[in-house]
Design a binder for these strands. Structure first.
Length: 499
RNA sequence: GGGCGCGUAGCUCAAAGGUAGAGCAGUGGCCUUUUAAGCCAUUGGUUGCAGGUUCGAGUCCUGCCGCGCUCACCA
């Protein structure tokens, strides 16, 4: 929709025009910054005792005006400026009063001093407009009480905060800080894996065949090749090809796309970590996951204890390990081993008062019990292990147990954070498992995955025994930033187009 | 997709079917070492959109749009 300026914006357009008429460029190409706001304060404090003058040129956005004073903010913080006609001249003073608004970017040159109330301030001798803001930002009113910043104004409408995240970031420093934390989490994750000799790789996002997870894909099309392509729903099958290619340890951090419902813990595109380690198995993955979270916690919070939604959570290893069978028995009283087929399990579930869908397989029924009855209670870090074979087509069988595979999911704060298994490396078994999965779905079902023949070809050349693991980076960020919805940890969460 | 709730000025919020308001921001002044600066005056609205009920609708009803919560879906 084209821009129709509102009243406040029209006023600012007039000011813009007045600046231009006076020969002032409201959007100059060059700035002459010598100090960030924080550096100007630091330099002044260092020189203050010996009375050495500190001359600075600072740049930033005006967020408050009080008489001849204004607060300007840059990425480092804030500093007060003092504009008086004796120092900048009558014309500039008038410009400051009349045509410079809250939200504008300006550059100020002058000596740093303390006002009589003690505020460190730049006494402007020059004032230059750097960028005129045509739309008004929500106004910030805040004051420091006992060292803490108290806010009296708000930009809190969630829809507007997400649709115009730039405004949210500009006015809400806690949001800005949260995405710095997100970056620290990812950096700490890389550092951890790199230090263990993992190789970071990049595999295709456009897949000719989708696989590695149970999800509906987004479909796109390559015009020149006349070929439909799918945005990846997982990296799994490509990373395992790299094990065939003789890398012992690989990982990828990147975006997955799933054409499914949106919720407080689901976004159509989300960031995933997957790592694979040759000559390991799901026990090895558990140890790596524990150490990864311990490392990230120390790097990001300085402690292995965090608070999530009012719960104190201890991330230090070892974490609780419980079999899926035992976990479900604990929380529902149902021992699914006593109901070894879908019909009998369904009946037991209904008798116990749980919903059980008529078409679900045995494994799916168990998975639903896990999600609805167990997961919300898994606040402290917990590995739930040994999953039904029929919902785990890429995980190796548990020796001597035809119904279970060596797979775990782990949960923290009542949320699934990741999924791992001992990887199938028997190409014939893998092929059979794909075909089995195919038979579980009707031929035209969107969830019926095509068989990735090239992946099977790769396995036939030999893949070493390996453990592999996927971790949801967004959920990990929710955990470490104490957020209850994924949208608060995505810079630009997906929203419907406005009608 | 279902259920429940919400949508009023740039921002945050009032208005019990009876004149659409406040604070901040803005505008015009005054003041000019202030700290949520202050004082005086003042502008600003298709109440998400479209219908309906009513003498009268921000308020009640229907549909639509968007957001939130929730359920479903999501090996």
């Amino acid at each position: 929709m084209p821009w129709e300026p509102n009243k406040l914006e029209r006023e600012r357009l007039e000011k813009l025009e007045r600046l231009r008429q006076r020969g002032i460029d409201p959007y100059p190409n060059r700035t002459e910054r010598t100090h960030s706001a924080a550096q100007a304060v630091a330099d002044f404090l260092a020189a203050e005792a010996e009375n050495i003058p500190v001359e600075v040129t600072v740049c930033g956005r005006i967020r408050a005006k009080r008489g001849p004073f204004a607060d300007i903010y840059d990425g480092s913080g804030k500093i007060q400026i003092y504009i008086h006609k004796n120092n900048v001249g009558q014309d500039t003073f008038k410009t400051f009063q009349k045509d410079i608004d809250l939200g504008d970017f300006v550059q100020v040159r002058g000596e740093v001093f303390r006002t009589k109330t003690g505020e460190i301030t730049v006494r402007a001798t020059e004032l230059k407009v750097l960028a005129k803001a045509l739309s008004p930002l929500p106004v910030i009113k805040e004051k420091v009480v006992d060292g803490k910043v108290v806010r009296y104004t708000d930009f809190s409408d969630v829809e507007e905060r997400y649709r115009q995240r730039y405004v949210d970031l500009a006015v809400n420093p806690d949001v800005r800080e949260r995405f710095r934390t997100r970056a620290r989490i990812i950096r700490a994750t890389r550092d951890f894996l790199d230090s263990l000799g993992f190789l970071e790789v990049e595999t295709p996002i456009l897949h000719p065949v989708y696989g590695g997870a149970a999800a509906r894909p987004f479909v796109t099309h390559h015009n020149q090749l006349h070929q439909d392509l799918y945005l990846r729903i997982s990296f799994e099958l490509y990373l395992k090809r790299l094990l065939v290619g003789m890398y012992d340890a690989v990982y990828e951090i990147g975006r997955d796309f799933r054409n499914e419902g949106v919720s407080f813990k689901h976004n159509p595109e989300f960031t995933q970590l997957e790592f694979y380690l040759a000559y390991s198995d799901y026990h090895g993955m558990m140890e790596l996951v524990e150490k990864l979270f311990e490392h990230v916690a120390r790097e990001v919070t300085g402690s292995t204890t965090i608070t999530y939604q009012g719960h104190e959570i201890d991330l230090s290893p070892p974490w609780r390990r419980i079999t899926l069978r035992q976990a479900i028995r604990e929380h529902t009283g149902i021992d699914y081993a006593e109901h070894p087929d879908a019909d009998s399990l369904r009946e037991a579930m209904r008798k116990a008062g749980y919903e059980a869908r008529p078409d679900d397989s045995w494994g799916k029924l168990i998975d639903h019990l896990l999600g609805s009855q167990v997961e919300p209670h898994l606040i402290q870090p917990t590995f739930v292990l040994d999953y039904p074979r029929d919902i785990s087509p890429l995980a190796k069988m548990k020796p001597g147990d035809p119904t279970h595979v060596e797979r775990f999911e782990f949960f923290i704060g009542g949320m699934e954070m990741g999924n791992a298994f001992t990887e199938i490396n028997d190409p014939l078994d893998q092929e059979e498992r794909f075909l089995e999965m195919g038979r579980l779905y009707k031929p035209d079902s969107e969830e019926a995955h095509p068989v990735d023949e090239d992946f099977l070809r790769a396995l036939r050349y030999g893949m070493p025994p390996a453990g592999g693991c996927g971790v949801g980076i967004d959920r990990m960020t929710m955990l470490f930033t104490d957020q209850s919805t994924i949208r608060e940890v995505l810079l630009f969460p997906h929203l419907r187009e406005r009608g």
